[in-house]
Simulated scan of single mutants.
Amino acid sequence: MTFQTLTLITLLGLAGPWLAWRQSWHLPVILGELLAGILFGTTGFGVLHPADPTFTFLADVGFAVVMFVAGTHVPVRDASIRSALGRGALRAAAVGVLAVIAGQAIAAWFGTGHGLLYAVLIASSSAAIVLPIIDSQRLGGKPVLELTAQVALADAAAVVALPLVIDPRNAGRAALGALLVAGAAVLVYLFLRRLEDSGIRHRLHRVSEDRQFALELRVSLALLFALGALATRGHVSIMLAGFALGLAVAAVGEPRRVAKQLFALSDGFLAPLFFVWLGARLNLREFGDHPYLILLGVALGLGAVLAHALMRCAGQPIALGAIASAQIGVPVAAVTVGTQLHVLRPGEPAALMLSALVTIVAAAWGTRSTAPTVRDN
């Protein structure tokens, strides 16, 4: 990779904010970044080379940071969310049951043999998409609290389940690696909790703020990279390492200063680089050789939307069900890990990303259709 290439990647990252500029469209920023990568990558002009080792490594770092930030967005300390956990857990479980049925049916119909993987995708929700929607649209009330709990639980469960189902032959190894990463995250939580309760963290924070040391950010990144190294050694995705650390930080309480610093680091550089890399890696030309996979992507996306919309039977408004179906982190991880392990068929990664786009469109519709009764006044 050269500075010329890095300049191009950074400029292509601006396609995200440009496409999402009009708020009424409710489009996520990552959509423009993915499309820019597709246009200049394998599918399009071929200017970007996603196999470049430096490009790939920076993208892995970006993926870890993206999942770390997503984990910190889960409101685990919010007492009002805890009160809605029961209803949210029941809905997440019900969607999971429907997802298994739909996933197996779709896998059998298309003959891919990836029923469990499809089930995880259909059941997943993306806290990184849904929670910003709730904040930006000022949604409130009991239904939204239940939605938040449902999404947080579904997102966490999908992140844990994905490494186990994407390569069933090595599920035991993946389970052991996942336990090691989870155990390390618990130790990190206890360590951070001790620093918080003893007042050491506050003293370090004052010195760091006065002297512009950015100590908390440096420690957070060191812990993230350490868990990422453990995940790599344990043959599980760095997605789990980032998300688990994010949950640990959220459980202790993320300082606002660190949140702003992480936002600048992630959304300003690493996240756009990752999504441009992901788009450059997708080969949509394979749809020409396997056009039926377009139907696979649409079927997976509609299956996810339908499974979540059916929670209307459990008292959830259809619009909120459509918002809950939004997914991006888990499909991205499935494409990244599945491609690295060579367990996905040609064209299947593009189909998985197409299914995610279908759910994002449905979430945009749900946002526009949200009843006034669930908005804060």
Score class of each variant (00 low, 15 high):
L145I: 01
L48R: 04
W18D: 12
V95T: 14
A94M: 13
Q212G: 11
W109Y: 14
G199H: 05
D376L: 15
H205R: 13
A152I: 00
G315V: 04
A333L: 08
L215N: 08
L85D: 08
G347H: 04
V66T: 12
L34G: 05
A251T: 10
A161E: 03
A333K: 04
Q104S: 12
A171F: 08
L306P: 10
A271Q: 04
G88K: 01
L58M: 01
A127I: 12
K260H: 14
I318Y: 13
Q261W: 09
G113N: 01
L306I: 15
I129M: 10
S325V: 11
A304L: 14
T7W: 07
V95G: 13
G37L: 05
S220M: 09
L131Y: 15
A185N: 07
F213K: 12
A184Q: 00
A264W: 10
T5A: 10
P28Y: 02
D210A: 13
H73L: 13
W21Y: 15
A158M: 03
A123G: 08
S266K: 02
A154M: 07
G62H: 02
G268D: 04
T148I: 04
A299M: 06
A250C: 09
Q4E: 11
C313T: 15
G44T: 07
A157H: 11
V181N: 03
Q150W: 07
S237Y: 03
A92H: 08
V298M: 05
L34P: 02
A127Y: 08
V120A: 00
R218D: 05
T7Y: 09
H308V: 15
L230H: 02
A178Y: 05
N283C: 04
R281N: 07
L162W: 02
E209L: 13
L320A: 06
A51L: 12
A158W: 03
A319R: 09
S325E: 09
T148C: 02
V144P: 01
L34W: 04
A334C: 02
A149H: 04
A309W: 05
G228A: 05
G246A: 08
L116Q: 11
A229M: 15
V181H: 04
T54M: 08
D197H: 12
L98N: 11
A248W: 00
S136T: 11
L293Y: 15
A64D: 02
A79M: 13
G41Q: 01
H342T: 11
A250Q: 05
R256M: 12
T2Y: 06
F287M: 09
N283S: 04
V159F: 09
V276T: 09
P28K: 01
A93F: 15
S80K: 14
Q23H: 12
Q212R: 13
T72F: 02
D60K: 01
R281L: 07
L14M: 13
F275N: 03
M311D: 14
L11V: 05
A161K: 01
A119P: 10
A319H: 12
L31M: 05
L27V: 01
V337L: 05
L85W: 15
I9L: 10
L320V: 06
A362D: 06
G140K: 06
L221M: 14
L117F: 09
D155H: 05
